Simulated scan of single mutants.
Amino acid sequence: MNTIMLASMASGITTSIILETVLLRRGADQLSWTMAARTAMGMSMVSMLAMEVAENAVDYHLTGGVVAFEDPKFWIAAVLSIGAGYLAPLPYNYLRLRKYGKACH
């Protein structure tokens, strides 16, 4: 179970960093690939880690790690874990907005 949780966290964070890097490179900022990657890794790593840990913790607590697509409890747990993943990084993001006056992503 720990391996699966770590793999899901790693894939979520990696996907987010790749997407942010591409957006910083190709979007309005037009950063170099190196600068875009460094910015993507630095600007929201804490936020992403908090989200992933919260989602996995709630999901595991409610389902025990059992994936049962036909069980409504599984889908309720999925919705609740998404909500927890949204709420977990809010304090950090709020503090960054207060301190720096800009979003971390």
Rank of each mutant, 00 (worst) to 15 (best):
A28T: 12
A28F: 09
A28G: 05
A28P: 11
A28I: 10
D29L: 04
D29V: 07
Q30D: 07
Q30C: 01
Q30L: 02
Q30N: 08
L31E: 02
L31H: 07
L31W: 12
S32A: 05
S32C: 08
W33G: 00
W33C: 03
W33H: 08
T34A: 10
T34R: 09
T34Q: 06
M35P: 12
M35F: 14
R38P: 07
R38S: 06
R38H: 07
T39N: 02
T39A: 03
T39L: 04
A40C: 07
G42K: 03
S44Y: 15
M45K: 02
M45E: 03
M45W: 15
S47L: 06
S47P: 11
M48C: 10
M48F: 15
L49P: 10
L49C: 09
L49Y: 15
L49S: 09
L49H: 13
L49V: 06
A50D: 10
M51L: 11
M51K: 15
M51I: 05
M51S: 15
M51P: 11
E52S: 07
E52H: 11
V53G: 11
V53K: 11
A54R: 10
A54I: 05
A54H: 06
E55V: 13
N56E: 10
N56C: 08
A57Q: 08
V58F: 01
Y60D: 12
H61I: 14
G64L: 14
G65N: 11
G65I: 10
V66E: 12
V66Y: 01
V66F: 01
V67P: 08
V67E: 05
V67G: 04
V67I: 13
A68H: 10
A68R: 07
F69A: 12
E70I: 01
D71L: 02
D71M: 01
D71S: 03
D71T: 03
P72F: 15
P72M: 04
F74T: 03
I76F: 12
I76P: 00
I76T: 09
I76A: 04
I76V: 07
A77P: 00
A77H: 01
A78H: 01
A78I: 13
A78M: 13
V79A: 11
V79F: 03
V79H: 03
V79E: 06
V79I: 08
L80T: 01
L80R: 00
L80D: 01
L80F: 09
S81L: 11
S81N: 06
I82K: 00
G83H: 05
G83F: 15
G83Q: 02
G85S: 11
G85R: 06
G85K: 08
Y86T: 02
Y86E: 04
L87C: 04
L87R: 03
A88C: 09
P89L: 12
P89V: 12
P89T: 15
L90Q: 14
L90K: 15
P91K: 15
P91T: 13
P91W: 11
Y92W: 14
N93Q: 14
R96D: 04
R96M: 07
L97V: 10
